[in-house]
Design a binder for these strands. Structure first.
Lengths: 143, 143
DNA sequence: GGACACTACATGCACGTGCATTCAATGCAA
DNA sequence: TTGCATTGAATGCACGTGCATGTAGTGTCC
């Protein structure tokens, strides 16, 4: 291994550890805060946000499960269950896709829109806190 | 909300999504590759790496559990169990801390050192692949 | 010395995740 | 049309995680 190789290696590892630290801090705090104050997990919030961004002409917010899967970093099964939780909470509804009856359309409800709007400021606050500064020790440490 | 606020907000969200994407791609691929080819998870590798870096005068590699907890982003309980798995696999040993009999000293074994050395090139390769380029779609998508 | 708060680590438990599988619907070929 | 591979999503299962708690050891104040 040449000098340059080990330098590149060290830089890579350093950026990887920085990534890990920031992700841990942000996702842990997000899960805790959103869960406590809005009954949402980090990924639940992300899914709601994708739906909110998908504003159709008639002001409905509808996405196919597969389209959601492209933007949320979850396995297909995890996403399926997450949508199940959101549905049970009344934040989205599931409907069959008329074009392709295998597909499922996920639609944001009024309540879902409201909960997202309520949670959003807190989420942004946590992001600013954990991604803004030059990292400051993370969450999982119940001590 | 002013124009500047929403700009800052958008930038924050963009960097957050980038972070999520890179973390998902890297951690998923790491877990899969390290697991398949070396029987290690991402966090197991990280713990071994911290131990390897802790080279004492007598060439032993020993760290207290709490010291590990500071650098690995896991809860105390998760770390305890992770060390249990490493111990069962013969990659580390647990010993009581003579100074403070509450503490546990975790020591890298020969086998642990070997496994780390074997896995390291692959880990670096995955990091280069997922952190080097400008992201390219991630893992959790068993389709 | 005894009581008490605190620390370090382990463990019971509930939960979210991914993998493998299943089931229904679709598309294509013969 | 029948037969078969493929796709979209749901489900059984095992596993790793975090939270709350338990247990042992330490330090302090009286």
């Amino acid at each position: 291994m040449t000098e340059l190789d080990s330098d590149a290696d060290a830089a890579l590892v350093a950026s990887w550890r920085d990534l890990l630290a920031r992700h841990a801090a942000a996702s842990c705090l997000l899960d805790r805060e959103l869960g406590e104050k809005h009954g949402l997990g980090m990924s639940e919030f992300e899914v709601l946000e994708r739906l909110v961004e998908e504003r159709n002409a008639d002001n409905s917010h509808v996405l196919r499960v597969q389209e959601l899967a492209d933007t949320v970093h979850l396995s297909q099964s995890a996403l399926s269950r997450l949508i199940g939780r959101l549905e049970k909470a009344g934040l989205v509804t599931r409907a069959m896709c008329p074009d392709d009856r295998r597909g499922i359309l996920v639609a944001l409800t009024e309540e879902g829109c409201r909960r997202y709007a309520e949670a959003r400021p807190l989420q942004r606050e946590v992001l600013a806190l954990t991604l803004g500064g030059p990292l400051e020790g993370g969450c999982p440490a119940q001590g």
